[in-house]
Design a protein around this nucleic acid. Structure first.
Lengths: 154, 154
DNA sequence: TTCTATGCAAAATCTTTGCAATTAG
DNA sequence: CTAATTGCAAAGATTTTGCATAGAA
């Protein structure tokens, strides 16, 4: 599915008159392979870790900004004081997020029933809804067990 | 309902051994009167506007931080790259947010059906859910009408 | 060749901290 | 009197911009 997403992205970028560059390509590949949301910082670190080269901070921000405008990535705010980005699924792949308040772990989840409820609700609300975001916060399994371990902040 | 909230807050703060101060008092009064979320900056500006005195930035952040720890205010992230805070309802007053992507307007909404769906879902998820947040994004009535007006960013 | 993409460093924002002075209890 | 509260300014952290260069079409 990620291959498809990268291709779609490249196509849309090309049709906008954008040219290819190393930084954007690297970000696309990373997000294409990553199922869930990453912050700008995480992207920067990860890119440098993979191939020593990486991409400059500025480029990463610029790329993310552009991809967001094109709706190729979705901005996700999980309440951890960081903005994260993940590839926009386009079709049924839509998901939301579980966030552990203790260790910061993020996990995706999806629920058809919830989606239906949101869809119905969207009709009745004074806003032409184009997207929605749901975050459930709490304690993940391992944190619920070990009441003393400090946040890992990996 | 806001009076109640302020009283509750003062009580809990007192029982924690906290003393009263002007800055915190001002923030409490502002949030107590405000039904929906404000950012630190908005709070600062508003306090200065009301009485010329206002409160220092640092105090505002400290107060918000403390109120959040005590769960007296809830952090709200609407996807606008700002953290906002609103008083925690405590009981049934729970609400979520509609955000206009064009002008930045934020409106609260609530929906029992949706809450039920969330409650059911929370049982089936690998996380001990303690809270949730829902944001619907789109175009508000006035922005949907005037396709050219720039964001007001009031 | 022309216009986009990138990197670097400076600038702008937003938050947090250190410290001294103030004030509530 | 003691400990919490504030304000101010400095320090941090994150994100954006300006500008010159490299690169794609």
């Amino acid at each position: 599915v990620s291959e498809r997403w990268i291709e779609r992205a490249e196509r849309e970028l090309a049709s906008e008159g954008r040219k290819r560059g190393g930084a954007r390509r690297a970000v696309l590949e990373l997000l294409g392979a990553e199922p869930c949301a990453l912050s700008a910082q995480e992207i920067e670190r990860e890119l440098h870790r993979r191939d020593g080269r990486g991409a400059s901070r500025a480029s990463i921000y610029r790329v993310l900004d552009e991809l967001e405008r094109l709706r190729l990535v979705a901005r996700v705010e999980t309440g951890q004081q960081v903005v994260r980005y993940e590839r926009a699924s386009g079709h049924g792949e839509h998901h939301h997020h579980l966030v552990c308040e203790r260790c910061g772990l993020i996990r995706p989840f999806s629920d058809p029933g919830l989606e239906r409820a949101i869809a119905r609700l969207s009709e009745r609300v004074p806003l032409a809804v184009s997207e929605h975001e749901i975050v459930l916060r709490g304690a993940c399994a391992s944190c619920a067990e070990s009441p003393a371990a400090p946040p890992t902040d990996s």
